[in-house]
Amino acid sequence: MTIEVRNVSKSFGAYHALKNVSLTVEDGELMALLGPSGSGKTTLLRIIAGLDQPDSGEVLIHGQDLSKQAVRDRRVGFVFQHYSLFKNMSVFENVAFGLRVRPRHQRPSDVEIKRRVDELLGLVQLDPFASRYPAQLSGGQRQRVALARALAIEPKVLLLDEPFGALDARVRKELRRWMRKLHKEINVTSVFVTHDQEEALELADRIAIMNAGQIEQVATPSEAYDRPATQFVSEFLGFANRLACQVENGVARVGGFALPVELENYAGDAVAYIRPHEIGLARANGHDIAKATIDSIVALGPSARVDLAFGDDRLEALIDRERLAELGLSVGDDCAITITRAHVFKSA
């Protein structure tokens, strides 16, 4: 089932949460909505679910406009940020809820409900916990109950709001891997909201990066990282050094280097973003194009982060520690730098 969001806008009072947003999620895809808080990602997810009404625009699920349909008739699985498990019901009853509230003629028999719930609890590896209450579960277990409960209604699409947001780092990593595997198994078109880029990069087939109520870029994780479409994406996704530069005739002059850019008919001020690993270091030898001074060196496992003073700018370079040792560079030394790649945008 595909999800199609067309020209959706939504404001709360004077605050524009979404500005004319369009997005297509393909059948079976796992899409991440990534952005800082306040970027509108949760609002978009809630509108897809029907939990909020857009001021304008429409949401099509499998080609069907659902905007007139009540939430309960949409068959959209939704996993809430804080899981919102029903505290007065056991794990089993939580998962069975969606089956039990069906109109009598569509309701499965008790035996059938038991079979389905057991199957789901098996899927999320919680079979031994069926008779427990939410208060007796750990965060990760609650998260899996919420997921099983959402899946029980055989949703057309699955929506997850910050699914790992409330968990500690270790559990989060484990669940992420498990979730990836689960998605392959059940293959439901899914959208999840996150502010954690690592989570988005690791889990999603594609990422929609949102900022200030708009989608800045929709791309696969590697595409978004390697070819950020906007300044915001370059800054938000991973770290990038930022340098002012000049563009002329399709070439950007960045710190003495001439780099080809895709800004063909533009001449003037621009901003270049350079990833730390795209800065090369060498010993200074008197006639280098660009020189910098090493401010500090921080060992990060096998690599080292080298902080550089480059004129009035500061740069961060990432380099193998072995390579750094070979070069024999240390704090206070001058060194030569090379910039192999940059993403250049017109100055605003």
Binding site: F12, G50, L51, D52, A70, V71
Partner: peptide, 11 residues
């Protein structure tokens, strides 16, 4: 008379 603060349809 209006609904909830954020006017959530499900509520």
């Amino acid at each position: 008379m209006s609904g909830d603060r954020r006017d959530r349809p499900a509520l």
